[in-house]
């Protein structure tokens, strides 16, 4: 690929999704965009870049962005963020929100839905406690294609075997041909909508818990800082943020601090969430 073509695509992706593409990722562009070029009736990736340059066609730009963002996900991914949710976040929320009985959770890179559905399943496992609560789980992603799959709640045999205990498959899924569909009870607990983390968070409201895992790694420092600081503004003072195992706030922003000894878990710097969660 020509250097100027790479730079053009990298610039466009950065502007559109915050995705940072370094020159060592040329192979990713080629492997992911060549099939898209063919689908669009173009012979080569060069032709695709040409078309983008000339037409700036919105739907093509969107398809390219979606093809380049990573959407791998599985149920209860990394376990720890879900154990912490179950054992510390929920008990604290149960106490502190006992009068309003309202809980809002945001999965900011929801991909094909496994993360928000895993959280919904954990709430469902203790439904006696939560059934009278107003619980909202919002799953957003920049990629509309993955959200369609998330909304449908159907997964392949391979997908339901990565991270989902068999007891939960029995309890919360039904078989439809060679697919497994999550039960309506769980599906109704989660709403999905397209959302770009680079856009304005006004209108999102205030959340008690935010999961934003494995997306900041694709952003440069100023973008990470900007996203985290805007996230702080839509998080309750005693709220919690979960980042991916390879991500941190350290050296990026003062808005959050890590919860000591709990990997991937962060709270507002001026907050007291750890005490409530019994982690202080």
């Amino acid at each position: 690929m020509k250097t100027e073509d790479f730079e053009f695509l990298a610039g466009m992706l950065k502007e559109r999704s915050g995705l940072m593409l370094t020159p060592d990722k040329v192979y990713l562009l080629e492997s992911r965009l060549t099939p898209l070029a063919r689908k669009r009736g173009l012979d080569t990736l060069d032709a695709l870049v040409q078309k983008l340059r000339l037409s700036r066609e919105e739907s093509l730009i969107r398809d390219v962005t979606e093809a380049m963002t990573t959407n791998e996900s599985f149920f209860f991914r990394d376990n720890t963020p879900f154990d912490l949710f179950k054992n510390h976040v929920l008990p604290a929320m149960e106490k502190s929100r006992t009068s309003q009985k309202r809980l809002r959770i945001w999965c900011a890179a929801a991909s094909t839905g496994q993360e928000p559905y895993s959280l919904a399943i954990l709430l469902r496992e203790n439904w006696i406690k939560w059934q009278n609560w107003n619980i909202e789980i919002v799953g957003t992603d920049i990629c509309t294609q993955v959200l369609e799959k998330a909304k449908a709640g159907t997964y392949s045999q391979f997908e339901v075997q990565r991270g989902l205990p068999i007891q939960m498959l029995i309890k919360y899924f039904r078989q439809e041909g060679d697919q497994w569909r999550i039960s309506d009870d769980i599906r109704r607990m989660v709403s999905f909508r397209p959302f770009n983390l680079l856009s304005n968070f006004i209108g999102m409201g205030t959340f008690d818990v935010i999961y934003c895992r494995n997306v900041l790694i694709y952003f440069d420092q100023p973008t990470k800082k900007d996203v985290l600081e805007r996230m702080r503004k839509c998080l309750a003072p005693d709220g919690t943020v979960f980042l991916g195992a390879a991500e941190t706030v350290l050296g990026i922003t003062e808005a959050f601090r890590p919860v000591r000894g709990q990997r991937g878990m962060y709270v507002p710097s001026d907050g007291t969430a750890e005490k409530l969660m019994g982690l202080g």
């Binding site: 599985f74 376990n79 391979f158 075997q161 990565r162 991270g163 068999i166």
Partner: peptide
């Protein structure tokens, strides 16, 4: 991956 996931569960 599946073996690993199930065995850790």
């Amino acid at each position: 991956e599946i073996i690993e996931a199930k065995f850790s569960q």
